[in-house]
Design a protein around this nucleic acid. Sequence first.
DNA 1: GAGTAGACCA
Length: 508
Amino acid sequence: MDELNQIHAHTITHGLARFSFISSKLLAFSALSDYRDLRYAETLFNRISTPNVFDFNSMIMGFAKSSKPEKGFSVYAKMRSFGVEPIARTFAVLVKACFKLTFISQFHGQIVKFGHGCDVYVVSSLICAYSKCGTMEFARRVFDERIETTNVVCWTSLLSGYCLNGLVDEACLVFDEMPERNDVSYSAMVSGYVSNGCFYEAILLFRELKKSGSNVKFGKGSLFVSVLNACASVGAFEEGKWIHFFLVRNGFEYELELGTALIDFYAKCGCIRDAKEVFSRLPYKDVKTWSAMILGLASNGENKLGLELFEEMEKKGPKPNAVTFIGVLSACNHEALVNKAWGYFGRMSKVYGILPVIEHYGCMVDLLARSGRVKHAEILIRTMPMEPDGAIWGSLLNGCIMHGHVDLGEMVGKLLIQLEPTHSGRYVLLANMYADMGCWEDVMRLRKMMEEREVVKSFAWSFIEVDGVVHKFVADDKSHPKLRSIYRILDQLKRELKSSFITNEIVV
DNA sequence: GAGTAGACCA
């Protein structure tokens, strides 16, 4: 921007500012470039006596990229009052800044009036805007009415709209019908699957793409970000590892988003060593990269290292945000560091201006309840500024059971069942507590209640991937072909654990 | 232009 200031001064001193071409270029640079400064752009804009359509567009687009995109609406109003006729791009940008249906409808009317309804940029923007408002029927109508002029971007916008609104089947139909697909449309479908919990479908689609030998270009490699996310969610280790090799071979590894996705993937698969390796190799790390690493360390038992990393981040990394503190509090929770956690909980708002959300309170309540400070946990729940959810009461109930606070436990258990009457785990926890106390009548009463309300207890299950094959284990399932050898090893582990426990007891 | 990284506890 310093250079821009100099150029601007130069144009004034040499009498060049009156050439609209030059002032338009200056405005576009200050409003839209990577080094943009919107306040400076506004000053430049206000000095132009008769702004043309490109000047208005620069300002509208500049605001669209900012944190207050709706400010573009008043620029549009000014544009109309100046009698300047909007072009298609004006609407494409404006419509995307709409967060209310009434605004979209108004602009839609203007689009038709000025004859820009066939423009592909406008069509895709309208589809995005209607999708964001949850009105897929309007998005579909725009698409169907202009189907002869649609391109791959419009198709992808429609597909993403369906995914955003949880309509995965409709999104699949769109994906199947698309006349042309590129890396972005694959990425949209994969991430749509992931955001709707269809992790296997996401991975299968990627495998299909690999097998098909299609000529889809991987662009910056960002499709892998979505696939790694799916791999991390299901623990598809071999698939994720394959992607990592592919990325290294093609020089993608060190990109910010990919690096962060890899750290998260390795951490969620329990390979914290590989996560650390990627972290140390990344030349540029932002708040998400640091947070992913801290959360990864905390979820792999390396809590102290997680807290050390946070201290390093405070000294030489980016400014931490709310998610970073979830990792920090989580690490404190696992190490039972109550005082340290209170310290961080206070620092969050005092030093960084981050207001704690329910997840932060959840960490604190869990930590207090686990460490036996159930009364403190209860006070925190009753004084926190938001309505406590089932997870928070669940943490308190857990603490009550762990530390024998039966009266409070009973009260919280009943409250939880009232709050989440279809959640089987809530009944089971309370029933277990009654069983520990020998109150069998209460246990029976709860079981009956579950039957009457048709609450089904979901089975616990786990899985592991070996050589690309996923092995699933369900409680009481006897169907695995290697059942006997698995149980043999389990028995051996049990014996070893028991003997080490006895040895420890003798030492103590 | 469309898509894309981190989110308590259980």
